[in-house]
Simulated assay, not measured.
Amino acid sequence: MQLTHRFAADLAALWPEDERAGPLGLAVSGGADSLALLLLAHQAMPGRIAVCSIDHGLRSEAADEVALVERIAATRDIPFTPITVRLAPGNMQAQARAARYAAVADWALAAGLGAVATAHHADDQAETLLMRLNRGSGLAGLAGVRARSTIDGSDVTLLRPLLGWRKAELAKVVAAVGIIPVEDPSNTNPAFDRARLRARLAEADWLDPVQIAASAAHLAEGWQALEWYAELDWHEMVMREEGDAPGFSYCANVPRIIAIETIGRIIRELGGHVSRAEVARAWDRLWAGENASLGGVLAVPGVERVEKVGVMMRVWRFRPEPARGRVN
Rank of each mutant, 00 (worst) to 15 (best):
M45N: 00
V51L: 04
V279W: 01
G296P: 05
A102M: 01
A220E: 06
R198M: 07
Y250C: 03
V303T: 14
I263M: 12
N91Q: 13
S154A: 08
G289P: 08
F248N: 02
V145N: 06
N187V: 09
D55N: 15
T188R: 11
W206I: 06
P161F: 07
P82H: 09
L139R: 10
T4D: 07
E127V: 12
L226A: 05
L87D: 07
T188G: 06
E61T: 11
E203M: 12
L286G: 03
Q125W: 05
V279M: 03
R160I: 02
S137T: 02
I83K: 00
D33W: 00
L163H: 04
A216Q: 01
L201H: 10
R135K: 15
E19S: 14
V274W: 06
L162P: 03
G22P: 05
H56P: 02
R326L: 13
G136P: 08
A96H: 08
A94R: 15
T262F: 05
L40W: 08
W223G: 01
A88I: 00
L139Y: 05
A282L: 11
H121L: 06
L207S: 08
E242Q: 12
G295M: 00
V306F: 12
H218R: 15
R71T: 11
L39I: 09
D123Q: 06
P16T: 10
E65C: 04
A9M: 04
A143N: 01
G247E: 08
S137R: 04
R200H: 11
R326Y: 03
M1C: 01
Q224K: 14
P46F: 11
A147P: 02
G136I: 10
S149T: 15
L294G: 00
S293K: 04
V254G: 03
A213E: 01
R146D: 04
W15F: 12
K167E: 14
P89M: 06
E227I: 03
R198E: 04
R285C: 10
G112V: 09
R76M: 12
P82Q: 10
S154C: 06
M312A: 13
G243W: 11
T118N: 09
R76S: 08
D152P: 03
R160D: 00
N187H: 10
V274Y: 08
I263E: 01
E261V: 01
A140R: 10
F248K: 04
T84N: 09
D123C: 04
A220R: 02
S53E: 02
S53M: 03
L39V: 05
Q211A: 15
V116E: 03
A99H: 07
G302I: 08
E236M: 12
A94Q: 13
V297W: 03
V315E: 04
W223Q: 14
